[in-house]
Amino acid sequence: MPDLPFLLFSLVAAAAAIMVVTRPIAVHALLYLVVVLLALAGLFFALGAPFAAMLEIIIYAGAVMVLFVFVVMMLNLGRPDRDRERHWMAPAVWIGPSLLSGLLLAALWPALRAAPPAGPGSPTVIGPEAVGIMLYGPYVLSVELASFLLLAGLISAFHIGRDIRGTGTGTGTGTGTGDA
């Protein structure tokens, strides 16, 4: 029987996740996403991974979400967007995806319910030191790959986000020429 904080965090995470996918307003969804991430950080703590929990809070709930917030701000969404979003979220739209998701869950359920093989006993805390040794030991190549990935992401984001027209203003719809 899991302990209380674990259960709490789990319920919060699941509920917030459902809120994320159902909010018509992007900022609301974003805030619920932050809630999901924070709840997951709590879960990581509970699972004995404080380093991961901290990173989750700092990088995910911090940096990445700030990125999202900036984008939402730049998009300058308003009432028409909300109405359109409601229109897009008509009940009939949900049938297919819900069916698929339900099926996925149903397919995963028996596999997860099966009795897990016996482990080495109750969980213990695995601190940053062990993770660091592992990272710069056998997984150093993965670290290199991750750095390449981040570099590639950086360059691509810069490339995509650069102002093609070269007008120098390029702050959104003001300079757009509209759909062809």
């Binding site: 297919g96 995806p97 698929l100 998701s101 099926l103 996925l104 397919a107 995963l108 028996p110 596999a111």
Partner: peptide
């Protein structure tokens, strides 16, 4: 994405049962 999901589910089903 839907087709990918359907394929995943099918693969899972084959694996689980």
């Amino acid at each position: 994405a839907g087709w990918i999901a359907a394929g995943t589910i099918a693969a899972l089903c084959l694996g689980a049962w």
